[in-house]
Design a protein around this nucleic acid. Structure first.
Lengths: 143, 143
DNA sequence: TCCGGTGTAACAGAAAATGTTACGACAAGG
DNA sequence: CCTTGTCGTAACATTTTCTGTTACACCGGA
């Protein structure tokens, strides 16, 4: 399972936006977010761009530009973030088509597909139970 | 999420071993398995080697060598296969350490760690509910 | 002792994720 | 309307992971 960190980066950015908002700073630039995540601003723009396309954040152009939450942090679930930034499912099929002359090779992909679907449903259910506000609360609990 | 196919390959190999066993052929070589999966025999040896280290299959050396199931297919769950072949969890943390001077940077990793743990538990529970015998049955249902 | 197959190292290639630089587009404010 | 700061995105470099391939030592039954 290739460990990608898209969900982590996006959740981090959103939690930081939520905290800044609570502190009275509605808008952050990609550079300010990047400073907390400790990465390049372009990475943040790409991630927040995904979130914008899904309606989770707003962006302002021009001078004094930057990013802000489009909705209350309590109402944004990790499932929405997951759908916004993740493209590949957790488990992949064979890269090359299996041997279709073998009964196992013929039927294995639909069979595993159903099972993987059930697994992903379980993942989605768990992610739906946590909001950005929850993430932020847990984050600030650690001192 | 980087789509890797380790669980798929291992499940395919085990299902094929289970079917061969039912047909009276207890032992298959890595080349025979590779022919069904449609890949290189070394890939299969690596995968089955993982499964052997976890006690799911047996190997025989010397002449007439090959692989066989170590337990009844009904008793081998996909969770055991997952643990045998998968190393990385579904979601990765930041590659580079976040900015520890930011309150979010400081607390985000333990916070997300707990959430990701819950997600993985859900995955494990789902995988534990399916056996290799189930996979084989579903596989043969497709004609 | 032969022989077919495993175990594993070493390397090649491909694909994906991440990081970096560069620059046009855009809008607020003077 | 022009300056300025920031986004949006392309292009490319780098790193990492996965997969495939070749090669060869080793093993054990006949």
């Amino acid at each position: 399972m290739a460990a990608n960190s898209r969900l982590t980066i996006a959740a981090h950015a959103l939690a930081w936006l939520a905290l800044a908002q609570r502190r009275g700073q509605e808008i952050l630039t990609s550079e300010q977010v990047a400073a907390s995540v400790n990465t390049n601003p372009v990475i943040i723009r790409r991630s927040l761009g995904d979130l914008r396309r899904s309606g989770l954040v707003n962006v302002r152009h021009g001078a004094g530009a930057g990013w802000s939450l489009a909705r209350a942090p309590e109402s944004i679930t990790l499932l929405e973030v997951y759908d916004a930034v993740e493209q590949e499912p957790p488990f992949g099929m064979h890269r090359t088509e299996p041997n279709l002359e073998c009964p196992v090779g013929r039927g294995i992909r639909p069979a595993l597909g159903e099972i993987y679907d059930r697994v992903e449903q379980a993942v989605r259910q768990e992610l739906a139970a946590t909001s950005i506000a929850d993430v932020l609360r847990e984050t600030l609990r650690v001192r």
